[in-house]
C-alpha cells in the first residue's frame, strides 16, 4: 500500500532520490549520534536487519500480526475522516513527496505521516494505535512518536514549506476505537534532530561489503540500542566481550567513575590506584566502596545472602 502512495506522490520534477528512509530509521539514527557503525550503514543505505543476520545476530521477529492489523485498521479509520478528527474542517488533506539531506545526500522519506493544510500552514498528523487513557498515554510511545514526527517537520521546513511545530497525534481513546487528537510540541525533538543530522559525517564506503564495513567501524553500544537499532544484539555481544561498562547502562558506568571496562573497575577497586593510567581519585573511591561492600558482606556471611559469591575470587 505504501508503495502505491509513494509512486503517486513521488512524481515531482525532482529526480528520484537513491535512498528512501522511514522516519523511524532517521529518528533512531540520531538517537545514537556517536556511533560510527550505524552512521556508516545508514548513510550507505545498507539493510541493517540483513547485515545483523549475516553477522549471526538476527533481531527477533518483528511485529505481531494482531498489532499490525489493528494499526492498519486504525490508520484507515483516521484517514477516512482526517479533517474532522484533527479539527481542521476548513483545511485540506495534503500530499508532499518528502526529501531530506542526510550525510551529504538527498534521501526520500517513506510517507508514513498524514498532512493537513489549513490557512497555508501544514500540520503533520501521526495516527498511532496505542491508547490515550484518561488523557494520558505511554510517555515512551509519545516521545517515540514525537521523534518520528520531528523528522517530517524538519524535512518540510528544509523544503521551504510553512509547517507547524506542533504535530497532531491521533490515538484511540480509552478502550474504544474512537480516534482522539492531541497536540504535541516537537520543538525540542526538532532541534536535537537538526543538530545531530548536521553532525553526521558525509557518506562514504560506497560499494564496500556492508558486513565487513560494519565489523570494522567503531560502535558505541548502550542498552538503548536494543529498542532502536537492528544491530543491537551484535553490538551488545561485542561490548560484553570487551567487558564494556556501557553494556550495563550509562548510569552504571557513571557510578563507576566513567571507567570503561569491567576488568579495570575491579582492578582499581581492589588496588586503590589508577596505576598511572587512570585518575587516583576515582580509584580511591572505587576501592573504598569495594572495602565497605566486602566488610558488610563479611559481617553477615553464613547467615545471609551469599548466592553467587563463590565465583568472585576466581573470576576477577
Amino acid at each position: 500500500m505504501s508503495e502505491g502512495v509513494a509512486t503517486l506522490c513521488g512524481m515531482t520534477t525532482e529526480q528520484e532520490p537513491a535512498l528512501t528512509y522511514s522516519a523511524r530509521t532517521l529518528a533512531a539514527l540520531t538517537a545514537n549520534p556517536g556511533c560510527a557503525r550505524r552512521a556508516l550503514l545508514d548513510t550507505t543505505g545498507a539493510d541493517k536487519a540483513e547485515v545483523a543476520g549475516q553477522l549471526g545476530f538476527p533481531m527477533p521477529s518483528g511485529q505481531s500480526r494482531f498489532a499490525i492489523t489493528r494499526g492498519n485498521a486504525f490508520e484507515a479509520q483516521v484517514k477516512a475522516d482526517l479533517l474532522a478528527i484533527t479539527g481542521h474542517e476548513e483545511g485540506r488533506v495534503a500530499e508532499v513527496a518528502l526529501r531530506l539531506e542526510v550525510a551529504g545526500q538527498v534521501v526520500g522519506l517513506e510517507p508514513d505521516a498524514l498532512l493537513v493544510e489549513d490557512d497555508d500552514l501544514l500540520f503533520v498528523v501521526l495516527a498511532k494505535s496505542f491508547p490515550i487513557i484518561d488523557g494520558r498515554a505511554s510517555p515512551e510511545k509519545v516521545s517515540a512518536a514525537a521523534r518520528q514526527a520531528a523528522v517530517y517537520v524538519l524535512a518540510l521546513q528544509r523544503m521551504g514549506r510553512a509547517v507547524s511545530e506542533e504535530v497532531i497525534l491521533v490515538c484511540p481513546e480509552n478502550f474504544s476505537n474512537k480516534p482522539v487528537a492531541a497536540k504535541v510540541d516537537v520543538r525540542r525533538q526538532l532541534s536535537v534532530l537538526a543538530r545531530q543530522l548536521d553532525r553526521l559525517p558525509p557518506a562514504e564506503g560506497d560499494g564496500a561489503d556492508p558486513v565487513a564495513a560494519a565489523k570494522a567501524a567503531q560502535a558505541r553500544y548502550a542498552p538503548e540500542c536494543l529498542a532502536a537499532c537492528e544491530l543491537a544484539f551484535f553490538c551488545r555481544d561485542e561490548a560484553r566481550r570487551e567487558g564494556a561498562t556501557d553494556a550495563m547502562g550509562r548510569s552504571v558506568r557513571d557510578e563507576l567513575g566513567g571507567v570503561s571496562s569491567v576488568g579495570e573497575v575491579l582492578r582499581q577497586a581492589m588496588s586503590g590506584t589508577g596505576g598511572g593510567v587512570a585518575d587516583d581519585e576515582t580509584a580511591e573511591l572505587l576501592s573504598r566502596a569495594w572495602r565497605l561492600r566486602q566488610a558488610a558482606l563479611a559481617s553477615t556471611a553464613g547467615t545471609a545472602n551469599t548466592a553467587g559469591m563463590a565465583g568472585v575470587a576466581g573470576g576477577v
Partner: peptide
C-alpha cells in the same frame, strides 16, 4: 556505587551478586 560495583562483579563472574 556499591550496586554498580556489584554489577561489575556479576559481569566479571557471570553470576548475580548480592
Amino acid at each position: 556505587i556499591l550496586d554498580a560495583l556489584a554489577r561489575a562483579e556479576a559481569a566479571a563472574t557471570g553470576r548475580a551478586q548480592p
